[in-house]
Nucleic acid binder design. Structure first.
Length: 478
RNA sequence: GGCGACGUACCCAAAUGGCUAAGGGAAGGGUUUGCAAAACCCUCAUUCACCGGUUCGAAUCCGGUCGUCGCCUCCA
C-alpha cells in the first residue's frame, strides 16, 4: 500500500517516496519562544507527530528537525534589548513548549536547533546569496533577498503570485527599511538602538538574522540541501515558506523540499484565538479539565487540512472515547487476566488460531485510511467498528484468550500512531481485589445492602465497578 | 482589491462519478443486570446550502447564487 500525501506545491495528493530509500528527512517549523504556546500551536505539532509516527510505522527511518526561534522582533521586544534577559525568557518558554510536547505524548524531534546557535550557518548562507547576487546590502547594513533577481519567485510554487496585484502602497510606507523591491525580504537586519546588546558581530556587520533564513540554514545543517518533507501551519505558506524556497534554491541550485504539508488552524468555540479577544487557550487550561489523551484525540480527530473548531463538547466526546478505548483494552486483557476473572470458556470457534472470517480485519482498513493523506476519520471508524465486533464476541462469551490477545496487540500497534492510550495502566491494588471478592460473596448470598456498601467504598477509593459475565471489573475513575 | 478553502442529520465528521451516504456523540426504545455501570441491538439525512447544466448515472464534475472562514501584516 502506498502512502499518498497532499502536497501544497502541486495542490494534489501524491505518492510519497523518500528521496533516498527509506530515509525520510523531515523539517517542521517550531515555535517562536516569546510566550506560552497555545493549544492551536499544539495542533500542528500533533499533526506532525501523527505523520512522523505513521512514516515510521510504514518502515521509514525519520529524522525530524524542529527549530526554536529564540531571537526575532517579538523576543527582542519582550527582553527590552537585554541579551541575558532574552536568553532567560526564551529558555523559559522553550521549556514550557517541550513540557507540552511531552504531556501530549508527542515524540521528540532529533534536533531542536536554536536560532541563536545557528548564526554562523545563516551568515554563511547569506554570504552565498550575496556572492550569487541574489541578495544585496542596503545603506544601513541590512541584507535583502532580491525577488527580481530570482525570477522563479512565487511562480509554480506554494502560492501563485502576481507582483502587480500586490498592495504595494501600504507596505512601502510601513516599511522602515530601504528595500529595492517591495516584495524583497530581509535576510540580515542591521543593528538598531532598540536591539540593545542583542546583536552578532559577523562578516555581514553588526546585526541579527531575519526570520526566514533560519529555517533554511537549520534544515541544511542537519538534513542537507534537499528535504523530503517540510511542514508547518497554513499561515506559514506565505511568505515564510515561499521565501525559504527562494533563498534555499537560489543558494543551492537544488530543489529544496519535495513535499510541503500544512496544517489548518484551530479555532476555539467558533472563534479565532487572539489576544484581543482574550480567548487564548493554553494546554494547561485544558489539562485541568481533560486528560492529555482526550486532548490529543480531540486535536487528532479532525483531518489536518480542515479547520478544527475545538469545543468543550468535542473534548468531552474525546474523553468518552478514550474511556471506551481503554475499557475495551482492559476488557480484552481481562479475558486472559489473572484471578477469577479470566475463566472464560473457550468455545470451538474462538480456540487458539484465528480462523478465516474471524481474523482481526481492521488492520487493512486502518492502514488504507491513513495511506490516504492521513484520513484519520476513516481510520478511527475502522477502530470503532472492530471494537464493536470484539465486544459482541465477548458479550457472547465467544472469544478465546489468544484472540483477545490479538486484539490487544493490534490496538497497541495502532496506538503507536495514535498515541492515545495511557503510558501504562496503573496497577490496581490487591486490596481492591479483596474487596471485590468480599462483594462477590455478598452478592452470591444476595446481601445487596452489603454489596452496595462495598461498591460505594470502592467508589470512594476511586473505582467504578462493572459486573460482567466474566466477573467484576474495577475501573479507575477519571 | 487579490489568492484560497469550506457548506453532508440535533452536534462532530468521512465518502470526490455508480451497490442500502462511514464512524463518533446526543436523544428515544430495547436486550442484559439484584440494582447500577459497561457492552450489545433498534430508531435517528429518499438526502448531501440553493439554482441551473454535463452524464445512462453526481453529495462528488461545470456555471451561477447565498453563506461561513482563512491568507495577503508577526502567527502553528
Amino acid at each position: 500500500m502506498t502512502l499518498k500525501l497532499y502536497n501544497t506545491l502541486s495542490k494534489k495528493k501524491e505518492d510519497f517516496v523518500p528521496l533516498q530509500g527509506k530515509e525520510v528527512k523531515m523539517y517542521a517549523c517550531g515555535p517562536t519562544v516569546y510566550s506560552y504556546p497555545h493549544i492551536g500551536n499544539y495542533r500542528a505539532y500533533v499533526f506532525e507527530d501523527l505523520l512522523r509516527r505513521y512514516l515510521e510505522y510504514k518502515g521509514n527511518k525519520v529524522t525530524l528537525v524542529m527549530n526554536i526561534t529564540d531571537v526575532d522582533d517579538k523576543t527582542i521586544k519582550a527582553s527590552g534589548g537585554d541579551k541575558s534577559k532574552l536568553t532567560s525568557i526564551t529558555r523559559r518558554y522553550e521549556k514550557a513548549f517541550k513540557k507540552g510536547l511531552s504531556i501530549l505524548n508527542i515524540k521528540s524531534a532529533d534536533e531542536y536547533p536554536r536560532a541563536t546557535e545557528t548564526i554562523d550557518e545563516m551568515v554563511e548562507l547569506i554570504e552565498t546569496l550575496l556572492e550569487k547576487e541574489y541578495a544585496y546590502k542596503t545603506d544601513d547594513g541590512s541584507v535583502y533577498f532580491s525577488i527580481e533577481k530570482y525570477s522563479k519567485y512565487g511562480r509554480d510554487n506554494l502560492v501563485q503570485l502576481d507582483p502587480k496585484s500586490m498592495r504595494a502602497g501600504e507596505r512601502i510606507s510601513e516599511d522602515e527599511y530601504d528595500k529595492e523591491g517591495i516584495r524583497d525580504f530581509v535576510l540580515w537586519k542591521a543593528w538598531k538602538e532598540e536591539d540593545g546588546d542583542i546583536f552578532w558581530e559577523t562578516s555581514l556587520g553588526k546585526g541579527r538574522p531575519g526570520w526566514h533564513i533560519e529555517c533554511s540554514a537549520m534544515s541544511m545543517k542537519y538534513l542537507g540541501e534537499e528535504l523530503d518533507i517540510h511542514c508547518g501551519g497554513v499561515d506559514n505558506i506565505f511568505p515564510h515558506h515561499e521565501n525559504e524556497i527562494a533563498q534555499s534554491e537560489a543558494a543551492s541550485g537544488k530543489k529544496f523540499v519535495k513535499q510541503w504539508m500544512h496544517c489548518a488552524h484551530l479555532i476555539y468555540e467558533g472563534e479565532k484565538m487572539s489576544k484581543s479577544l482574550g480567548n487564548i487557550i493554553l494546554l494547561e487550561d485544558l489539562t485541568k479539565k481533560y486528560s492529555p489523551e482526550a486532548i490529543r484525540l480531540a486535536l487528532l480527530s479532525t483531518h489536518y487540512r480542515s479547520q478544527l473548531d475545538l469545543t468543550d463538547k468535542k473534548l468531552k466526546e474525546a474523553e468518552g472515547n478514550i474511556q471506551k478505548i481503554t475499557a475495551f483494552r482492559q476488557r480484552m486483557k481481562r479475558i486472559r487476566g489473572k484471578g477469577r476473572f479470566d475463566d472464560v470458556k473457550l468455545s470451538a470457534t474462538s480456540s487458539v488460531n484465528l480462523s478465516a472470517g474471524r481474523s482481526i480485519k481492521f488492520q487493512p482498513d486502518f492502514e488504507e485510511a491513513l495511506d490516504d493523506d492521513l484520513n484519520i476519520s476513516e481510520a478511527l471508524s475502522a477502530l470503532y467498528r472492530t471494537m464493536r465486533e470484539a465486544n459482541i464476541l465477548s458479550d457472547e462469551n465467544d472469544i478465546g484468550k489468544d484472540e483477545a490477545v490479538q486484539y490487544v496487540h493490534q490496538l497497541d500497534e495502532f496506538d503507536k500512531m495514535l498515541g492515545i492510550l495511557p503510558e501504562k495502566e496503573a496497577e490496581i491494588d490487591e486490596s481492591v481485589y479483596e474487596k471485590i471478592k468480599e462483594r462477590e460473596d455478598a452478592r452470591l448470598a444476595e446481601d445487596w445492602a452489603l454489596s452496595d456498601k462495598i461498591r460505594d467504598e470502592l467508589f470512594e477509593m476511586g473505582y467504578n465497578l462493572e459486573d460482567t459475565p466474566h466477573g467484576t471489573i474495577p475501573k479507575r475513575k477519571k
